[in-house]
Simulated assay, not measured.
Amino acid sequence: MRAIRSRRWVLYPRAKQALDHLNRLIDHPRGTRMPSIAVYGDSGMGKTTIMERFRDDNPSGFDPITGKERTPVMAMEMAGKPGERRFYAELLASLGAPQSPRADIVQMEQAALRLLKVVGVQVLVIDEVHNILAGSHRDQRIVLNTLRFLSNRLQISLVCFGVTDAREAISGDVQLARRFEEFSINRWGANEQFETLVSSILRNTPLRKPTVLTPKSLRRILQVTEGITANIFHMINCLAADAAQSGHERITDEAIENWRPLSDGGAAYA
């Protein structure tokens, strides 16, 4: 039961495409106008999971030549109501170097630049970038200018994750927006890719017997989950847990037909 409920990574085609795009940024030659990627999708489509996988695939490591710890990918979350101070505070906290409340913007900026350079950050990943829109127009412009400044000064790529509204947030700075390649993660439809996703999840579900589903059951899963990745994982995990407890050790078409979510917001993965 613990294995069924544990968080599991399932590599499906769209996630692999996203990771392939992101990993190309690591090997890109450094320059003054570094390429960047914006990943958009509805809540629950697996953006944060992809972000975490990208970060984990490029972990910090000790460089024996310089004698320093190197961090190729640095991840942070955009604050709920961002401004320049809050942005730098979040960035410095992600670097493990929170600043004194008395530090001014210039001190925080210089500390962030120094530390990002010291640890060798090549890609700065920003989750929940749509939160930029929660700030005033002035604060939005300042945060976007800050992102462009960091990319130019340190010759690093930016990767932004957010819901569709994030397009509006990034478009507030035309020069910055031109650097971003857009990558959309759309809801699942009734196609071969959806069947591949469900098959991959089932193969990674620790039941003792194999599960083979009919097209009707696949349509039912798609209908109940509304094509949202998090809901698909949640539904299959619940069905697998019920199968283990009942002793059936496989998910049946009947179980899928009778399954109902406890609530409308039953997503288990972001």
Rank of each mutant, 00 (worst) to 15 (best):
I4L: 03
W9Q: 13
V10H: 01
V10N: 08
L11H: 07
A15S: 07
A15T: 01
L19Y: 06
R24A: 08
R33M: 14
M34C: 09
P35C: 02
T49R: 01
M51L: 04
E52F: 06
D57V: 04
P59D: 07
G61V: 07
D63H: 10
D63R: 07
E69W: 12
R70Q: 12
V73W: 11
M74G: 07
A75S: 14
E84Q: 14
R86L: 12
A89N: 15
A89Q: 15
A89H: 15
P101V: 04
A103K: 08
D104R: 06
I105E: 10
Q107C: 06
E109R: 15
Q110I: 06
A111M: 10
K117T: 11
V118L: 15
V121M: 10
I126W: 01
E128M: 02
H130A: 13
H130M: 04
I132G: 09
G135H: 06
I142C: 10
L150Y: 04
N152F: 02
R153S: 14
Q155H: 15
T164G: 11
R167T: 08
I170N: 04
S171R: 11
F183A: 11
I185H: 01
N186E: 15
G189V: 02
Q193K: 09
S199D: 13
S200G: 08
L207H: 04
P210C: 05
P210R: 05
T214I: 00
V224K: 02
T225A: 03
E226W: 05
H234F: 15
S246N: 03
S246P: 07
G247S: 03
H248P: 01
N258M: 13
L262Q: 08
L262K: 11
S263K: 11
A267Q: 14
Y269E: 09
